[in-house]
C-alpha cells in the first residue's frame, strides 16, 4: 500500500490549484481591466491617477460594506441591515457632533472626534450583536432577522433627526471637536483617507481569513456547520462574531461617508446592502457559504464602483447605470454557477 499516499507530489499540485484559484479570482480581475480599458477609450478624463483615486474613494464605501458582507456570506448567512446601519451610524455621529444635551445636569457635551468614532462603532457592533444573537441563539433565519434590523435601524435614524439632515459636521475649534471631515477629505501621500481605511480593513480581513484559527472556523462552519461543530469549532460564537464585524464595517462606512459629505442624512445608504452583496458575488463567493475570499470581493467592489463612475463620466443616464450594474451581477453569478456546478458534477 506504499502508493496510497501521494504526499510526495504535493508541491506540484499546489501550483496547479493556485492557478485554478487565480482564474476564479481572475474573472473579476479581467472584468475590471476591461472596464478600465473601455472607459479610457471612451473618455479622456477617465485614465488618470487622480480620477482613479477619486473613484476609489467612492468604492471605499461599498468596499467596507462588502467586506463585512463577505464574512457573513462565508458563514452561510446574509446581512441586509448594513445599508441602514450605515445611515444610522452617520446620523448617530452627526447627533454626537452637534452636542449631546444632558437635561438633568443642564449641560451640553461635545465629545471629541475620537470618542464619536468609538461610540459610533460600538453602535454598529451592537446592531450586529442583536442580529447575531437572534440568528444563532433563537434560530431566526438570517434573511428575516437582518431584514427586521434593516427597518428598525432606518426608522431609528429617521426618528433621531425627524427626517432632517445634520449639516456642518466640521466641529468647532473652541469646542475641541474639529477634525471629523479628516476621514473624508484628507489625503495621506495623496491617497484619500477613505481608501487607506479600506485598504487597512481589507488587509486585516485577509489575514484573519487566511492566517487565523477564526478564519478557518468561519470557512468550515459556512461549509458544513454540523461537521464543524463536531470538530470542535465554536460555531455559535463564530456566527455572532461575523454579524458584529459586519455591523462595525457598516459603521466605519457610515463614518467615512458622512465625513466625505460633512453631513449625515437618515436615508444615506439606502439599498447599499444590495450593492455589497453584488460585490461579494461578483468576487466569486458562494451565497451558500464556505467559498470566497477578500481579493475577489475587493475586485467585485471595484468593478461595480469603476463601472458606475465610468458611466457617469461618459454621461450615460443613471437609469442605464442601473441596467448595466444588473447585467454585470447576473453575468458574474452565471459564471459562478458554471464553475461550482462543474465542480459538483462528479
Amino acid at each position: 500500500m506504499a502508493d496510497t499516499t501521494a504526499s510526495a507530489n504535493a508541491p506540484g499540485k499546489k501550483s496547479n490549484v493556485s492557478i485554478g484559484k487565480m482564474l476564479l479570482e481572475g474573472r473579476a480581475f479581467f472584468a475590471l481591466i476591461a472596464i478600465i480599458a473601455i472607459f479610457s477609450f471612451l473618455s479622456d478624463n477617465y485614465f488618470s491617477l487622480n480620477n482613479f483615486l477619486i473613484m476609489s474613494n467612492h468604492v471605499a464605501i461599498f468596499g467596507l460594506l462588502a467586506i463585512g458582507m463577505l464574512l457573513v456570506i462565508l458563514n452561510g448567512g446574509i446581512d441586509l441591515s448594513v445599508g441602514s446601519v450605515l445611515g444610522l451610524s452617520g446620523v448617530f455621529a452627526g447627533w454626537l457632533m452637534q452636542g449631546v444635551e444632558l437635561e438633568s445636569m443642564g449641560v451640553i457635551l461635545y465629545p471629541p472626534v475620537w470618542a464619536v468614532v468609538i461610540l459610533t462603532l460600538t453602535l454598529g457592533a451592537f446592531v450586529g450583536l442583536i442580529n447575531g444573537i437572534l440568528i444563532s441563539r433563537f434560530n431566526v433565519p438570517a434573511f428575516v432577522a437582518t431584514l427586521g434590523s434593516l427597518y428598525v435601524a432606518r426608522g431609528a435614524a429617521l426618528l433621531m433627526t425627524n427626517g432632517l439632515t445634520y449639516n456642518n459636521l466640521g466641529g468647532k475649534a473652541e469646542l475641541g471637536n474639529t477634525g471629523f471631515d479628516w476621514l473624508g477629505f484628507n489625503r495621506i501621500a495623496n491617497v484619500p483617507v477613505g481608501v487607506i481605511i479600506l485598504a487597512i480593513v481589507a488587509v486585516l480581513t485577509g489575514l484573519v481569513l487566511t492566517r487565523t484559527a477564526f478564519g478557518r472556523w468561519l470557512y468550515s462552519s459556512g461549509g458544513n456547520e454540523r461537521a464543524a461543530e463536531l470538530s470542535g469549532v465554536p460555531t455559535a460564537r463564530v456566527k455572532i462574531t461575523v454579524y458584529v464585524l459586519s455591523g462595525i464595517c457598516a459603521s466605519i462606512a457610515g463614518l467615512v461617508l458622512s465625513s466625505q459629505l460633512t453631513s449625515a442624512g437618515p436615508t444615506a445608504g439606502t439599498t447599499y446592502e444590495l450593492t455589497a452583496i453584488a460585490a461579494v458575488v461578483i468576487g466569486g463567493a458562494a451565497l451558500t457559504g464556505g467559498r470566497g475570499g477578500i481579493l475577489g470581493t475587493m475586485l467585485g467592489a471595484f468593478v461595480i464602483g469603476f463601472l458606475s463612475d465610468g458611466l457617469v463620466i461618459i454621461g450615460v443616464s443613471s437609469y442605464w447605470q442601473t441596467v448595466f450594474t444588473g447585467a454585470v451581477i447576473v453575468l458574474a453569478v452565471l459564471l459562478n454557477s458554471i464553475q461550482y456546478g462543474g465542480a459538483k458534477r462528479r
Partner: peptide
C-alpha cells in the same frame, strides 16, 4: 453530514480539529 466540510480541501479538513 457530520464529518466533512465539502467546501474545504483534504488538508484543511484533516487539520480542522487541531488548529490550536
Amino acid at each position: 453530514r457530520d464529518g466533512l466540510v465539502q467546501t474545504m480541501t483534504v488538508g484543511k479538513n484533516l487539520s480542522l480539529s487541531s488548529i490550536g
